[in-house]
Design a protein around this nucleic acid. Sequence first.
DNA 1: CGCGACGTTGATTTGCCTCAACGATTGTGG
DNA 2: CCACAATCGTTGAGGCAAATCAACGTCGCG
Lengths: 194, 194
Amino acid sequence: MFEAIDRYTETCISLTQEERSVFHSLLVHKSVPKKTVLLRAGDACDFEAFVVKGCARVFFINEAGKEVDLYFPVENWWISDLPSFTSGKPASLNIETIEACELIVISREAKAKLFAEVPKFERMFRLMLQRANEELMNRFISTVAMSAEERYKLFLKKYPELPNRVPQQLIAAYLGISAEFLSKIRSGKHKKED
Amino acid sequence: MFEAIDRYTETCISLTQEERSVFHSLLVHKSVPKKTVLLRAGDACDFEAFVVKGCARVFFINEAGKEVDLYFPVENWWISDLPSFTSGKPASLNIETIEACELIVISREAKAKLFAEVPKFERMFRLMLQRANEELMNRFISTVAMSAEERYKLFLKKYPELPNRVPQQLIAAYLGISAEFLSKIRSGKHKKED
DNA sequence: CGCGACGTTGATTTGCCTCAACGATTGTGG
DNA sequence: CCACAATCGTTGAGGCAAATCAACGTCGCG
């Protein structure tokens, strides 16, 4: 049941059998169907979850009502609205499953208990944040420094399997362009003819 | 000498006198003039630094040679190219002082030693990353969801003193717009006349 | 004083958006 | 199992925010 997350923890820290048991005792396994809302902006986010299987979307909605996807968590990613999860304040993000998902969930209390009982986990969550930070920075840089077409090609290269799992309009919302324009990029019709 | 950074650590963790001494013994104080290159993309980043006084820029140069400023570290911010600092791989970021700076520097070895001797610091660096992550996400969201003018107003509101410390063309590079267009926003000439 | 860095302004171009209409594909209830 | 709706993607016309290019003012400094 916890094989996937155990494999993940091993990439960050090594645990004794006992420590692993404490960890497991604080986790909850959960299966949800596709199109399930896991978090609605405005609510407090009371979980951090590891994706064992499936695909979701983390997005926000701006004042104009336009949705922007931040990332598409798949196997071995973590999902949460961390500022909300940490502080208890209302979340600014929305999280919804795209496929049926198998998740491993940890609550705020469980996480605090984990840090208290096995401080080693501070390190794991630090390393997780470090990776997330690097990803986000790369994403930011490509968003401001590249054209829509270049961003799309980079997306294909980085996540070659996602176009099969994520509807095209959500990919457009991830790239920060309109669904129509993505369609034009794909057909090459956005360039001036010569 | 270390008052500023001590005040910073207190916002994250509490230390005994001894722990604080260990911490101090691993730090190096450094003063650098303005326009000093602290890190060049391609080199390995061998430091993480706390800004006691002064102002710098952390920026990125894309293939087309365009510079994009990620942030302007001032008093009480940290600067580094974390992926490079952690892994030893070449940095993708550039760091340069804008004003003369007083820095407190910690090396890779010193940081490792710090974690080994005072594990409590894992928590501090985790919390730092959490803040940085939140900041970066907000920055990303406003970049994709707001117009150039709105972003500029937000920048003024958030960092009212920076326009006095950072040349306007760098602010444009931060906002992801051309220097000319920022000038037009400031004078109101970018709107259609009526 | 004169040169370089910084900022401004206007003319033109362009990348992407919006709106609208139209295929294709999927799924669902009768 | 078909009919019909809903969802998803495509295409074209027209518009706008911001880029680019070019020229010019201004200030601080060697």
